[in-house]
Amino acid sequence: MPLRLSAALVPLIFAGAAFALPGTQSTDVMKRLRLMTQIRDTSTTLGSMARGETTFDADHAGRLASKLRADVAAIPIHFEFQVIDAGSRARPLIWADWSGFEEAAARTEAAAAALRTDTPEQLGAGIKVLEQSCQNCHRRYRLAD
């Protein structure tokens, strides 16, 4: 898949997170949605830099990648409690298949850890792998829009 097409998927991967907040009652769900929105926004910014849509700055990309790594590492913590409300996109399968969910989160964390930010090309390749990992997890553990 070409980088341009692949990078365009980042907002779609996380679509719905920002829109779900108004129907959300649970603080646990709000925290999860906020985390996923942060991951989406950071990934989108990094993808934009990789594609040359915004100025590439290796130092700024490195700081964003560090933030992304920390946010991605926090995913399982935000799902420890089985809380679903009207604003949640989480499938109950997350908790029924907790070890599978943790493995999927670990793969995403590994993809985030592997991000290199020295060049736009390195960054773009890493974002593509991260997107794929996010998509795989969302297909299995997130309700469709």
Score class of each variant (00 low, 15 high):
residue 85 D to I: 04
residue 120 P to H: 05
residue 135 Q to I: 15
residue 4 R to E: 12
residue 106 A to C: 02
residue 142 R to V: 08
residue 127 I to S: 06
residue 15 A to P: 04
residue 30 M to D: 03
residue 45 T to S: 13
residue 3 L to F: 15
residue 58 A to R: 11
residue 51 R to W: 10
residue 123 L to D: 04
residue 121 E to G: 10
residue 23 G to K: 12
residue 53 E to Y: 06
residue 23 G to S: 12
residue 105 A to T: 06
residue 41 D to I: 04
residue 53 E to L: 09
residue 55 T to E: 10
residue 43 S to H: 03
residue 25 Q to S: 11
residue 122 Q to M: 08
residue 77 I to P: 00
residue 27 T to P: 10
residue 52 G to V: 02
residue 72 V to G: 14
residue 128 K to M: 06
residue 84 I to N: 06
residue 18 A to F: 10
residue 136 N to Q: 14
residue 132 Q to N: 12
residue 109 E to V: 01
residue 19 F to P: 07
residue 58 A to Y: 06
residue 89 R to Y: 03
residue 110 A to Y: 01
residue 115 L to Q: 02
residue 51 R to T: 13
residue 26 S to Y: 12
residue 58 A to E: 04
residue 64 L to I: 05
residue 45 T to H: 09
residue 72 V to I: 13
residue 16 G to C: 03
residue 128 K to Q: 11
residue 69 R to L: 11
residue 135 Q to P: 04
residue 5 L to D: 13
residue 117 T to N: 07
residue 92 P to M: 07
residue 44 T to K: 10
residue 70 A to C: 06
residue 138 H to D: 09
residue 106 A to Y: 00
residue 96 A to Q: 12
residue 116 R to K: 14
residue 88 S to A: 10
residue 91 R to D: 10
residue 113 A to R: 11
residue 117 T to V: 14
residue 11 P to G: 06
residue 47 G to H: 01
residue 9 L to N: 10
residue 110 A to E: 06
residue 101 F to L: 00
residue 105 A to Q: 01
residue 116 R to F: 08
residue 120 P to V: 00
residue 71 D to A: 15
residue 25 Q to G: 12
residue 75 I to G: 00
residue 113 A to M: 09
residue 2 P to V: 09
residue 128 K to A: 15
residue 141 Y to M: 08
residue 45 T to L: 12
residue 31 K to W: 05
residue 72 V to K: 01
residue 31 K to V: 11
residue 85 D to W: 08
residue 131 E to C: 09
residue 24 T to V: 07
residue 138 H to P: 08
residue 119 T to P: 08
residue 6 S to R: 15
residue 41 D to F: 00
residue 77 I to T: 15
residue 75 I to A: 01
residue 5 L to P: 06
residue 106 A to E: 00
residue 13 I to K: 01
residue 18 A to H: 14
residue 68 L to S: 13
residue 137 C to H: 01
residue 58 A to F: 07
residue 119 T to I: 08
residue 109 E to H: 00
residue 71 D to E: 15
residue 87 G to K: 04
residue 135 Q to C: 08
residue 32 R to D: 02
residue 6 S to N: 12
